[in-house]
């Protein structure tokens, strides 16, 4: 840990839908360059927590800070919109279902927002697209439409699109869950490479092997609370909590089957 002050700081996150409490006072600090995996059964609140980081699913209580900026500021509508649109440029997000823009080519997907928000010229935007596609190994697909790509390629383009905004942190919401098994690896490779480049990442995943090999820290969530957290070798090899053990055992059985 380089800095004492956390880079990404979630303080007492709380979220309820009516009387249903999906996040119960969760705090999480992520240092710059750290990679944190969030695991847990479906409905545990892990995606909700991740989506609270860029205020896509606003919290009902607690604060999210990225460096010196509070993300989920309580502001009048117009001011909030201005604020959040700025903050979100620093927070890249990758979705389970890719969410590429089907009416644009790969190039268009990557350059649309940088051109609009950062005033990049056509040439600069092009260079940016080539550069980011290089990172995910898909330069030869630059003029393809999303419908012409495999699932793994789509997700790699989605990662390149997020990276093109030069984010400070990347959020992955089950990025490989919708992929055919044989396509998972190519996406994992890209994420591994980002890890080696010390990108700060928060990853919601069902891939325990991947989480173990890449992450600095693992959070196990269940029913809206962090049941256990620690380094991957502890969580996966020697979990202290009964619920963690149960979840991992069931998960392993599922994978073997």
């Amino acid at each position: 840990m380089k800095d004492a002050k956390p880079f990404l700081d979630i303080r007492h996150a709380q979220k309820s839908y009516g009387s249903l409490e999906v996040l119960k006072d969760i705090s999480l600090q992520v240092q710059r360059g750290q990679i944190v995996a969030i695991i847990g059964p479906s409905g545990s609140g892990k995606s909700t927590l991740l989506r609270a980081i860029n205020d896509l699913d606003p919290l009902t209580g607690g604060e999210v800070w990225l460096e010196d900026t509070q993300v989920n500021k309580n502001l009048p509508y117009r001011q909030y919109e201005k604020h959040i649109n700025k903050v979100r440029q620093d927070i890249g997000m990758v979705f389970q279902h890719f969410n590429l823009f089907p009416h644009l080519t790969v190039r268009g997907n990557i350059t649309l927002v940088p051109k609009m928000l950062k005033g990049l010229s056509e040439d600069e935007a092009n260079n940016l697209a080539v550069e980011q596609l290089g990172r995910v190994g898909l330069i030869d697909r630059i003029d393809y439409y999303p419908s012409q790509l495999s699932g793994g390629q789509k997700q790699r383009v989605a990662i390149a699109r997020a990276l093109a905004m030069k984010p400070k942190v990347m959020l992955f919401d089950e990025a490989t869950s919708a992929l055919d098994p044989e396509l998972v690896e190519e996406v994992n490779q890209v994420m591994k490479k980002l890890a080696e480049e010390h990108m700060t990442m928060v990853i919601v995943t069902h891939e325990m092997g991947f989480a173990e090999s890449v992450c600095d820290r693992v959070l196990f969530m269940d029913q809206g609370v962090v049941v256990e957290e620690g380094p991957p070798d502890v969580i996966f090899r020697n979990p202290a909590n009964e619920r963690t053990r149960n979840f991992l055992r069931k998960h392993l059985e599922g994978v073997r089957r």
Partner: peptide, 18 residues
């Protein structure tokens, strides 16, 4: 139009109107 499209665009920093 799939809600994920709006989420992806908003996440990149576009406004509602954009």
């Amino acid at each position: 139009v799939d809600k994920g499209q709006t989420e992806a665009a908003r996440t990149l920093g576009l406004s509602r109107f954009q």
